[in-house]
Amino acid sequence: MVGSQHQAQPEASMIDQDAPIIRIEALHKWYGECHVLRGIDLDVGRGERIVICGPSGSGKSTLIRCLNRLEEHQQGRIVVDGTELTNNIRHIDAVRREIGMVFQHFNLFPHLTVLENCVLAPIRVRRQPLAEAQATARTLLERVRIADFADRYPSQLSGGQQQRVAIARALAMKPKVMLFDEPTSALDPEMVNEVLEVMIGLARDGMTMLVVTHEMGFAKSVADRVLFMDQGEIIERAAPTDFFTHPQSERTKLFLSQILNHTIGP
C-alpha cells in the first residue's frame, strides 16, 4: 500500500536526496512450499536507522538478506539507490558494492590477516591502490578500536573482536547502507557491549542501518523506527518510544513481554 503511489517512478531518474535509499514493494519469497515473506512494503530513508525484531522464523533475516540478493525474491520489487534488484548480475554487483553486511557468525576470511580482510574488496572491487586501501582500513580499525591486531589472523581474536573487524571490513567499501544480521547473537555476553558501542557510534555518524537484533537497549537508544515481524509480515512499525510503551498488536505485546522479561531475568 505504501509503495503503490510510487510505482510510476522511472528507474533511470536522477537520484533524489529525499527519496528513500531502499524501497521494497509487495515483496514475496518462498522457500519451496514455505511462504517466508508475505507482502513486505518498506521505505528506508537516507540516514535512517531501523531495528527489525521478531520471533525466530519470522523472516527478518531473510528480509535483509534479500536486500543484497543473498536470497532471491520471487515477487515484488526491491530498489536500492535507484537500482532495481533483478537477475541482472550487473545490478546485483552494483547494489552489493553500496550495501555492507555484518553476519551473525562474522564470516571473516580465516586465511587472511585482519588488515587483508579489510583491504581485499576495496582493492579487487573498487580498484583502490593498495596503499590507499590500507590507510583506509587502518583508520577504520582504529575506529573499531582494534588497530593493534591488524596483522593477526581472525582465529587469534575473540568473538567480539572478530565482529568489530567484520564491521570495519564492511565499512572499508564505503557503503551507503549497512545491514546487521543478528550481530551480537553469537557472542559471549561480556562481548556484546563492545560491538554495540561500535554500532551506536556508526549510527551517530549518520549511517543508514538495518539491524536485525533482540538488543532492545540498542533499539531504544539509536533506532528511528522499530519493526516487528511475525510469520513473514511486518506486524508493527513505530518509533521506539511508542513501540515499547504502546505496542498495538497482541503478538507484539506477547513478544515484548517475553523478550524483556528474559532480558531482565530473575
Binding site: 543473498l70 558494492r97 555492507g100 553476519f103 557468525h105 564470516n107 581485499l120 574488496a121 572491487v125 567499501m173
Partner: peptide, 14 residues
C-alpha cells in the same frame, strides 16, 4: 562454510 561465500558476495566480489 557457506558463510565464506556469502561474505564475499556481500562485499561485491565477482
Amino acid at each position: 562454510p557457506k558463510g565464506q561465500g556469502e561474505a564475499a558476495d556481500a562485499l561485491g566480489l565477482g
